[in-house]
Structure formats: structure tokens, C-alpha cells
Design a protein around this nucleic acid. Structure first.
Lengths: 342, 342
DNA sequence: GTTAGCACTCTAACAAATTGAGTGCTAACA
DNA sequence: TGTTAGCACTCAATTTGTTAGAGTGCTAAC
């Protein structure tokens, strides 16, 4: 185990490196932070820390740089939970208010805020299965040959599509049909409306084939939408602010990965189990981001995963800040979602 | 006026520079393209072209580079209309099919395709005012204290929101209210439903204040959505492929501009009048992109502007290819929109 | 255990030398 | 008169050389 002084020195080196991106030398530590010991002593300690695998030298006469192991130790043992400044909180709140018309806007804002606050790329995965329950369908007349089919769920969502009215069908007949379909599906969760159920229904109302096909498509679309996971990215531009990404090639390769929605989704899903997950460098098994770190937080509502958010950046990342921001966003979202459900 | 040989040489220089991004020297031209004249002769011609303002020298002993004037001449007189390869057309068609669920997806795909085919940033502005006409509103029951307010327009769009039912109000009363509002607004274009009209309506039904406010919000939102212009960007990542943007600072500054949706919208609206508009370098009056060129095509349906698409990149741009691609997309969209309207 | 002193190392920054692509001019040629 | 070979000249880019500075590791003294 490291003694207190080693810990302290290691912490200072890590934090200095995080903020400057420059290798840290013994004199820097002695000058900047008053530890009451001379550079030579610090040098000896650093030499030990290097031997123990916590520090690395880019070359003989540069300062030292934290290793992945050092970051791991840092996030596990050294980091102290911080809190946001009032200013930051006010900023976040105002950014959320900027544009909030539907639930997707909230996720989009979260991604944006996360990246702005951390100067890194952010990813938000929204699980949409809110367990909405089918209520009824209804046909609204449009013109002589078309009607609008509305599917109403108990969360107040309405999906609709235009359907053609079969020749000669009267409004009462359509209402009757709507009633029959409704009574069968009433109370079912959208996600549990299976193909079997629908085809059973089909037998029942087979006479009105055209109309039923339209209905089938609409309900399927709605249930798909319901189960859909959506990915929101934020701050891909922020990458360019990080000295690690001064090199255009590196930017390109990372952006290439982020462009593949499927990859991002897999990446996020892989880390969903634990509440807060921090992967440093090669701890992450996805190729292409193994020189990056990722902090991911998954949030649940009544035990169900609602979404997960992550920050991706160079291993030299402000882990403390990231965690603090995520924590705040987490709480903020919680309030919003609970309020949404009433 | 330029004689044929000068034209030919200028064209070769421009095209060589477009494809290599390197200043073009007299020997290169003589070697690559068999004009039957020696480098010395070409040198004399180039010297003339420089005097005439078509060529510029980065420095004494580099080759020469086309001036803005040269590009202008090129797009006006030298460029010959090309056509897409079968391969490209197949690619475009498949990309369009990839994801097409609603009208926005089409615009998004257009932006994506445009950027992929041209290796530059693309912008698509979608005007949404389709001239939809108000038909009627309808309340759908949800639970004892809530209903869903649906606003139906003649194009088959339904906007909906959950409203609270005033205590003690019976369904018949709500239907009556819906009928009254509907009869006043029926047949009006959403964009012409003014505040005055709504407040006049308010006088009329003032007794049901809570419900009416909800309705007001919904109709306003719908009319806003109707007039909304949406901007779709594509291929901001492509920037990094252009040698002109090897410098991270330049990338940052351009991305900064593209991030401001309002700026992009203004930029696109400014060039909407003409069918095809090419601005080269400082011909564009917007600051920040004056070292870029922009090719913009505006498409109309029945005389009304439906949208406009543009490609933004370095002045050294494959104008011919860009125009060809846009032309194809234009035709493709036309088919889709006409089919959409039936 | 701590520290001052010092030789040693290695990069980054700067300067000087070299290379090579390209031009402009001139004189000769068809 | 238009074309071309030849040659001196220019200038950025590359290479090579030099220096300064930051940092280390070791040793000996405290």
C-alpha cells in the first residue's frame, strides 16, 4: 500500500496533469503545492511510484505522466466527491429550459449539457419502453374516402395515420369495428401486443381487410417506437478542444466510431448494469476507444432502466467534475420523469 | 477574351488543382496532359493568365493556383454537365431507402447523401408550410379528469395534447365546445389563424377558460410547427478529409458557425431565390465562410419553395460533381414529393 | 530519512545549409 | 511571330547542427 505522502504526491501529479496536459516534474510539484519537502525528496517518491506502476515517463528528461493504473487508483480511492457551483447549476437549469417540447428534447439537452460541462463527447441512450398501455382506437373522419386512425394509450400519447375507407362502409360500421378491436386490446401493454394476438384479432374481423391492415401497421409502428432505443450525441465538436485530439487523424477515427449509431448503442448497453461505471483506457473492450476513458451512469425508474448517459474523452479526464455533473443531471432527470408520470 | 489554348490550359490547371490541392506548375501540365507544347510555352501562357487575374502564385517558386475569378469563369463557361455513374445512382437510391419513415427522414437522408457524395458539408433547409387547412378539433376521453385534444387538418395530420377536464364538465359539453371552435376555424389555413381570430373566439367561449387555454396552446404550437423551417446538416466530419481543414483551428471556426442553427438558416434563406446559386469565396457576404464556396439549389413544388440544399466547402471544390449530384437529388425529391401528395 | 549538488539525458526551439520544384528571361529556331 | 531550350534565380520545405532548458538519478553530507 502507498503511504500518505505517496498518495498525496500521486494525487497532485494526476490533478496537475489533468489540468495542464503536460508531464509533471518534481520541481513543479514542489513549487506549486507546498508540501514542505524538497524536489529531491519528491523525486525519490516519484521514482518509487514509477516502479510501482503508477507513473510513466514519456522520455528520460520529461516529467512524469499518470498511468492507467494511477487513474484507476485515483477514481477508486483518491477522488473526493465535489459539488457544482451555483453558477454551473444555474447554467444547467437554463439550458434545460431552452428547448423542451417533448421527451426527446430532454435527452438531447442532457447530451448537450453533459458535453458542455465536461468539454468532452457525451452520449445518451434513451430506452423508450415506458410501459404504455393500450386504451382504444378511434376513427376520425377526414374526407369522403379517408379517415384518421388514432391509437390512444394511457400515457396520453396518440399515434395516428390516414387510412382509406373501404368503399361503401358507413361511419357506424367503422365505430363498431373500432370498438371491437379496442375491447380486445384494452389494458394490454404495447410491448405485449404480440403478432399472435393481432392475427387472432384478424380472424375475428377478417371481413374488413383493408382497414385492418392499416390498423396493423399503425399498432406495429407504435409498439416499435415504444421499444426503440434512441442515441443522442453531444459535443463531438468539443473533441477539438482537447490537446489529445490536436491530431486530425485521431479525431477522424473517433468520429468515425461515433457516427455508427449501432456501435454507440452497443457500447452503452454493455455498461448498463452498474449504476456508475468508469472504464479507463484498455479496460474498455471496444476497439478504437482504448486510448480513451469513459464514465457512464445508468438511471432507473422503478427498477427499470430508463436511460444511460456517458462521457467519452482522453484518459486525462476530469473524473471528479464528470461524476459531479452526472450526479446532478441524474437527480434533475429523476424529478422531471416523476413529474411527467404525475 | 481568352483564346482556346488559354482556356484549355486554365481548365487543366483548375481541374488538376481541384483534385490534388497542390499548386500546379508548367511541367506538371506538360507531362500529365498531352497538349503538344512545351513547358516553356505553357509558362508563357500561365504568365498571361496570371496578368489577367485568373491565376495566383502562393510564392515565387511554387506552381500556380486558380483565383476566385478563375473558378467563376470555370463554373460559368468551362464546366461541362456530367452525369452520375450507375454505381453512384444505386448508392443514392439505397441510402434513401435506408431509413424513410417520415418527411424529416427524407431531408436528413438528403443531407447525408449530399455530403457523402461530395465529401463536403451539406445543409438542407426544409420549409414546412404545406398550406394545411384546419378541419376540426375533437376531444378523446382519457381518464376521469383528462382528455386528449386532437386538431385535425385536411392533409391528415393530427396534433394532440393532453388537457385537463374542468371539474364537473360533461362529455356532451366538451363535444359542444369542440363543435363551436371547429365551426369558426374550419377551412382556415393554419398559417392564417391569427391571434385576433383566436381572441375573438375566446370572447365567444370565455366560460371554459382552462380548456380553452390548452386548446390555444395546441393550435399555436401546430401553426408554429407548420411554419417551421428545419435545418439538416450532413457530413460535418467530412471537413476533416479536406486538406484545407488540416488545421484544427479552421475546423473549429467553421463548425462554430454551423452549430448556430439561426446563422445556417439565414445563410440558406439568403440564396433561395435562384434555382442554382454558386458563390465563390468573398462573393458570399456571410463572415466566416468567405474562404469557402457554396453551391445551393432551391426546389419548388407548384411555385412554392419546398426546400433548399447546399454544399459548403473550400473554393477548391468539385463544382461539376456537386452540381450533378444536386441535380439528381432534385429530381429524386420531386418524384417523392409528388407521389406523397398523390 | 532528507536534501543540496552535479553530471547526465533528451526534447524543443532556433539557425544554418541543402534540396528541388518552379519561374522568368534570353537567345536561337522554324 | 510563335515556340522552345537553356540557365540563372527564387523560395519553401527538408535536413542537419546547435543550444537552452527542464528534468532525472546518483552521491555525499546533514
Amino acid at each position: 500500500m502507498l503511504n500518505d505522502r505517496k498518495k498525496k504526491i500521486l494525487q497532485l501529479i494526476i490533478e496537475d496533469y489533468i489540468s495542464t496536459a503536460e508531464p509533471v516534474g518534481s520541481r513543479t510539484i514542489a513549487r506549486k503545492y507546498d508540501l514542505g519537502i524538497s524536489p529531491a525528496t519528491i523525486r525519490n517518491e516519484m521514482s518509487d511510484l514509477e516502479l510501482l506502476g503508477y507513473l510513466e515517463k514519456p522520455h528520460t528528461s520529461a516529467g512524469r505522466v499518470p498511468s492507467a493504473q494511477a487513474y484507476r487508483f485515483y477514481v477508486d480511492s483518491l477522488i473526493e466527491p465535489g459539488s457544482l457551483t451555483d453558477n454551473d447549476m444555474a447554467l444547467i437549469n437554463s439550458w434545460y429550459k431552452e428547448r423542451r417540447r417533448n421527451i426527446d428534447d430532454i435527452f438531447q439537452s442532457t447530451a448537450k449539457i453533459l458535453s458542455r460541462m465536461t468539454q468532452n463527447v457525451s452520449m445518451v441512450l434513451a430506452n423508450k419502453d415506458t410501459g404504455a398501455v393500450f386504451r382504444y382506437i378511434k376513427f376520425l373522419p377526414l374526407d369522403s374516402s379517408h379517415a384518421i386512425l388514432c391509437i390512444v394509450t394511457d400515457d396520453g400519447n396518440v399515434d395516428n395515420c390516414v387510412v382509406e375507407i373501404p368503399l361503401g362502409m358507413r361511419p357506424e360500421e367503422m365505430d363498431y369495428l373500432a370498438g371491437r378491436i379496442s375491447s380486445v386490446l384494452e389494458g394490454k401493454e404495447l410491448s405485449e401486443i404480440s403478432d399472435e394476438l393481432l392475427s387472432a384479432l384478424h380472424m375475428d374481423v377478417a371481413e374488413d381487410k383493408v382497414l385492418f391492415t392499416s390498423f396493423l401497421q399503425a399498432i406495429k409502428r407504435m409498439s416499435r417506437k415504444q421499444n426503440e432505443q434512441r442515441v443522442f450525441l453531444g459535443g463531438t465538436k468539443q473533441l477539438l478542444n482537447q490537446p489529445e485530439f490536436r491530431d486530425v487523424e485521431r479525431v477522424k477515427s473517433l468520429l468515425g466510431i461515433l457516427e455508427e449509431e449501432k456501435v454507440v448503442r452497443d457500447l452503452l448497453v454493455a455498461g448498463e448494469d452498474s449504476g456508475l461505471k468508469i472504464t479507463i483506457g484498455t479496460e474498455n473492450k471496444f476497439t478504437g476507444i482504448q486510448d480513451c476513458s469513459m464514465v457512464q451512469a445508468t438511471y432507473r425508474l422503478n427498477g427499470k432502466i430508463v436511460g444511460t448517459m456517458a462521457v467519452l474523452g482522453p484518459t486525462r479526464m476530469e473524473y471528479g467534475k464528470v461524476i459531479t455533473v452526472m450526479d446532478y443531471l441524474h437527480k434533475y432527470l429523476k424529478t422531471i420523469f416523476e413529474q411527467e408520470k404525475e
